[in-house]
Amino acid sequence: MNDSKELRFKQIIEENKLRIDGICRYYSSNSEDRKDLYQEILVNIWKSLDKFRGDSAISTWIYRIAVNTSLSFAGKAYRNMNLSIDQMPQSLNILLDNDELELKQKKEQQLEALEAELNQLSIIDKALISLVLEGLSMREIADIIGLTEPNVKVKIHRIKETLKQQLIKA
């Protein structure tokens, strides 16, 4: 039984490496913290594996563990996480609906300003935004967080509006 658990664990990690890494990279103030978070997520996947009954998609389950771990109370550095975004334009587009913004052409400045503003968000808002940046649908985010889809849409819309207002001011 232990061998089959080990095989299943390895398979899940292999198939979901990018997802786990995706969440970790948003929460890295430094590479050591990211490594610690990555390891802790793996530990919690192992601990929760026996309880997984397939009532949600594996990806949803993995994201839940990743977010729950990030929000957990171990007192690690990533509790005060700094959100890091990559340079892919899609990230910016997802958050800014950039057709309406004057600063659309200054992508580099926008990214820096956006990162600064993202780090001002509360830990919950950061968690929601990290899932948006992963390209998840509202339905999927609602499943992970445990809220209704309309509730999640309202929250994310509010965060986006706040970010836009802050960027316009800046």
């Binding site: 929760s48 309880k51 949600s56 563990i65 929000l71 992970i144 445990g146």
Partner: peptide
């Protein structure tokens, strides 16, 4: 049996 695979609100 702390389960990290449940929705975030439920875990909290």
């Amino acid at each position: 049996t702390v389960d990290y695979g449940i929705p975030v609100t439920e875990m909290l």
